[in-house]
Design a protein around this nucleic acid. Sequence first.
DNA 1: TATTCGCAAGTTTTT
DNA 2: CTTGCGAATA
Length: 790
Amino acid sequence: MSHLQALNEYQQRAVTTVDGPLLIIAGPGSGKTRVITHRIAHMVSDCGIAPYEIAALTFTNKAADEMRTRIERMVPDSYVWTGTFHRFCSRLLRKHATLAGLEENFSIYDSSDSLRLVKQAMEAVHPKDIRYRAESIANEISRAKSACIDAENYGRFALNALQTVTTPVYEVYQSLLSSSNAADFDDLLLHVVTILKNSPDLRQELDEHFRYILVDEYQDTNLAQYAIVRALSIDHPNLAVTGDPDQSVYSWRGANIKNILEFEKDFPNAQIVRLEDNYRSTKSILRVADQLIANNRQRKHKVLRTENVEGDPVRLVAFPDQQTEAQSIAEELSLWLKDNIYQPDEIAIFYRANWLSRSIEHALRTAGIPYQIVNGYEFYQRREIKDLLAYLHLLNNPSDSVAFERVINVPPRKIGKITVQRLKEFAAENRISLFEAARQSGLIDTIKKGAATKVAGFCALYDKIAIDATESVERLLQTIIDETKYIDYLVAEDTPEAHERAGNVEELLLAAREFDIAHPDDGGLEAYLEQTSLVNDVDAWDSANAAVTLMTLHAAKGLEFPVVFMVGLEEGLLPHERSSVDEEEVEEERRLMFVGITRAQQKLNLSRCMTRFRRGRVWPIIPSRFLMELPRSEMEISEPPNTHYANLVDGSRGAADVWNEHEMAQEILQSQDEDDVPFAMDDLVEQENSPQAKKTSAAKSSPDSSLPAEKPEAFNLVSAAEMLAGNGNNPQPSGLNLSAGQFVFHPTYGRGHVDHVEGSGKKQLATISFESVGEKKIKPAFSNLVIIGR
DNA sequence: TATTCGCAAGTTTTT
DNA sequence: CTTGCGAATA
């Protein structure tokens, strides 16, 4: 029982419960990873379970690698399968591809590949139909697949207009995928679901093989993933899942929180262990997290307790704009780093959306602070990288039409759209792949001789490259680059950008070489392509790198840092404008903030801006409603003097949108009965099943759900939600009363100084000298002014 | 066929 | 401010 040392009572229970279904509800910082690794080590070394009978499904490859290393360290030579769901399914699918109508060398399409295909399908179904954007339809298809609805059955579920339009597109899209011998991300899961359903023998065999299954971050699994683990836990229901409903932040991509909430229903004999002792954060950080998340109604009560020190108060700062926000953070970091108070790798900066990293990057670069941005995804999305990978895809899978179309004329070979169109038609008529059609281009009478010669040239190039197809990936890539003169093509325009692209190609070669070294035997082109297709952001993150980490809140899940900055805590950003009305979505945004807060071990710094540059304009900004839900009295708050956010709402464009959203939400809420008792689990389950789920759930939240627990004092920060809920007699602010000497901000003219005012209230007329356009006379009541100080 | 220009639209989160 | 797309031109 060596694996039980230094574990608390609950952790020990989780580790020693080996057989039968097990649910581990693990709060943030509760030592979950330790528990999982100890549990597996215990299973192998104390219970005599063979390592190959265990599969551990994690959320990121990074987490999988870490887990594998830790297990290896405890029990040498134990090969336990660890990896993500998508990788797990990809492996299964390679083995049993024919059962899903694929060949084993199928391509995996990322979202941009599949978007291209959706556009083609739309073009085929309704030419020039512009009622819906391809993105919406692609998203709808993805949603359906996550919910295990295939193209055949989708039509039966189509209720609204979007779904009706999607139905035929989905079918064509699926046939395009199949003729390209390709699977999109969702297919990886859905095909496996289908196989397990249609092949009972295989299902049984796999159930027997993976007798012990462990799923991490179970709150973020979707229906397809659920179906897979269920199917593999029928004869051997040794399914252990860990998760935390309060950290469920992926419902937008089909994750179903019901999976974890209903685990006990699925497995009536399930053991349940709660890990509630937090070993990560200070008491003050934890109280902030706890008070925030308490505002979620759809939630099981959970306590967060720690023996850790009280720690510094959580800080909340308001900045006039994002440059100041970024610079201030950079300045503070400079001081800390200079005095060695913290090391760069102990610090992280989180934000809601990727583009928010730009101003921070700029400030850090200027200040000479080393940083790393976590979005490896971006690298593989670059044009030059996608081009070269498309060549590899085409070599591995000549049916791959998306890859073919991508490279047929890159670098330019004077093969145009029309020729490709003709090839496509020919391919469709004769039910052959685009590439096969290209090989016969000389025989296609719609294609002119000149064009056919060029296409034949491309085929010859392909064959020349293909000689190296069984060489190392690096060598193959090098051959492609040489034969296509790809670098020359890139550097043709002699811009700095072009050379950066060339640099990226070098980086790709380097990565390929690393792959070759790491996979001397099990490598090969197919494995390399699988790896590059299934990378995620966090996988590229190097925790040992001596640099400040910049990442999105989503990417931060599962990590921890001594010092955390969270920026842009503003309405429209967190909660995001696209998730700020529907109460369920707002709760997910709140969980996202909860995740961010609970990453911090010692210091937590929250900030927001009063204006933000976005879409080519500077917009006035309302603070995030979540800031009102924190225990403000015990926090260290710096709000600027003389700011009247109430005035922002009046007539100001950006703020008005937010205002309207609050108002709409409010109306929905008030039109409902208020006799509902606080959230109960069964209610949630019922709601999800009913077609009116969304409406019903909105009714569950009482109108004051976003109100601060206690009235804020000593600051003049007022959220729109609070004003609405206020005394009801002040729905519209009465206009801005300026006084001479103030500095103001105007959305068009920018920053200005109030020289002179006459009158008051709505009739007030102010003379303001703007830095940009000089003196203007303005009626404050009717313009979008923000007072930014004196 | 390639390039260029202008316009429009859109910027969540990711396997 | 970016990016992608479509039409008009060389």
